[in-house]
Each structure stands twice: as structure tokens, then as C-alpha cells.
Design a protein around this nucleic acid. Sequence first.
DNA 1: CGTGCCCCCTGTCAGC
DNA 2: TGCTGACAGGGGGCAC
Length: 276
Amino acid sequence: MPELPEAETIARGLQELLPGRRIDETEVLRADLLIGSTPTFRKWLHSGTFGAIGRRGKNLVLEVARSGDRRLLVVNLGMSGRLLFRARDATDAPPTHPGVRFSLGGGDFLIYHDPRRFGRLELMPESRFAQWNATLGPEPLDAGFRAGDLIRALAGSASPIRSWLLDQRKIAGVGNIYANEALFLSGIDPQTSARAIDAARAKQLHGALRKVLREAIRARGTTLRDYRTAQGWEGSYGGRLRVYGREGEPCPTCGTPIVRTVFGGRSAYLCPRCQK
DNA sequence: CGTGCCCCCTGTCAGC
DNA sequence: TGCTGACAGGGGGCAC
């Protein structure tokens, strides 16, 4: 579910709510969501204090400090995960599938909710975090990520470009929605081999990726079904998607009906006229 | 090592 | 109404 814009939106929301809050207790209702031992997870977090909240790719990164030590709570939301701040005076219905509940004192909670349980939480010491961080590709919105970097990276791979974009080791944070949208904007067929994309087209792809990711962040992400911000709100980018989920609808550029194909086990949406 | 396929799990919806 | 199959934003493991 959540790709870079959704994770960024959640991180920004939590950054307003969590820093300085102490964890009184951690309840693990679904141990299969954790990487590592549940008792260690609970014990270490007990009396820890949240610091800065950020994101790496599609993952949320929550700093926790405890008696001079610092660890990173890394949360991957899978397809249906939510990381919700629930205030003491919340009146809406509580989450239906809570997996981990952090008591913040004063009756406030941070709740990890995940019906499908594809998500994972891992509490990482600094060294482990550095090792994990190194497995992920560059951040597409970083100023240091230049068109030239993308052009060089594409040259080595025979994979279809859509599959290449989904590989988190190549670029961090791009998922199926924004890969399809960026390929539409740059006029590239999703099945094109990565190394068959010339420099001019790759430069367009670089710009398109940054454009759609920035637009989506401004709209607080795309809610198709499960995604919610930390405050429980839906994202509004769904109505602005150009091709994703729009099989049979007219291409916004030329009016040709959008086509859905399946490869690599997932749907690709494209305009057969605009994307060659 | 790179790549493609299957599977993890639950909920929802279309079609019969 | 109720059953069945397809499908969903992700990613790890395995065979080739």
C-alpha cells in the first residue's frame, strides 16, 4: 500500500505528535509482525522516549532514546499497515486489527494496525540500522539524486523498467502506483527493458518520478483502500492518478482507452498510444 | 549475481 | 443470499 508519499505523510504527522513522548508499555498482540524477540522488543522500549520521526524509502524510522542509548524502530507497512496516533479523547471506532500498541501515558497510544500482516517492525541498534540502510537505493527526492545517476543505473539491467523501479535496491520508495504514473508521464512502456531506455528518455523518467512523488506528498498520498495518515485521514491523490486503476478510461493526453496488463505478478496500466 | 515466480494473509467485490 | 475466484499499495525465499 504505502509507497514513498504515504510513508512521508505518516512520518510528518508523527513528527508533530511523538518526539518527547515516553513509552510506558508496549503490547505485542501479533508477534509475527516483529523481526526479533518480543521480550527484547518490549523490554528495550519500556521507558524509552521518541525522538525524530523520519522515513527511508517506504519505511518509517522512529528514533527512540533510552538511558543514553539510541535505537531506530523501523516500520514497513506492507500492503495494509497503518501507524496511528490515537489520543485519549478519540471518539472514532478503535482499530479493528491492532498488532502492536505503545502506551504513551495520559491515555494516548501509538497503534500499529495491519489486517493482512504483511508489515514488519524491527528495533535496530545503530550498527544494524546502517547495514539495513545500505541495502536500499538512493532517495529519488534527494537533491543529490541526479538524472545522470538514473541513466547510469539503468544501463546494467535487462529487467522491464516497471520491475526495475519496484526493486528497492535500485531506488528506494517507488511502488506500483507511482512507477506506473511516472512511466506514463515519461512516455515509456512498462515492459521496456531498463537498458533499452536512452539518456533523453531516462532524463524524462527522472523528472516524472520526482514530479509524481512530490504531487502525491502534497495530496497526503493515495488511499485506494487501507492507507491512512497517522491521524487516520485518507490521502487525496487517488482522484488525480492518470493511469493507475483506470483500465478502459480515456488517456488524459490522447483519449485512447487505458490498457491493463499483468507481468511480474502485478498489474501495469498504460496508454498504448503514448507509451512506446 | 540477476531475475522471475510463488507465497505470506485478510478483506472486498464481481459474477454466477 | 451465498459461494467462488480474482485482486489488492510489499517483499522474502527459492529455483534457474
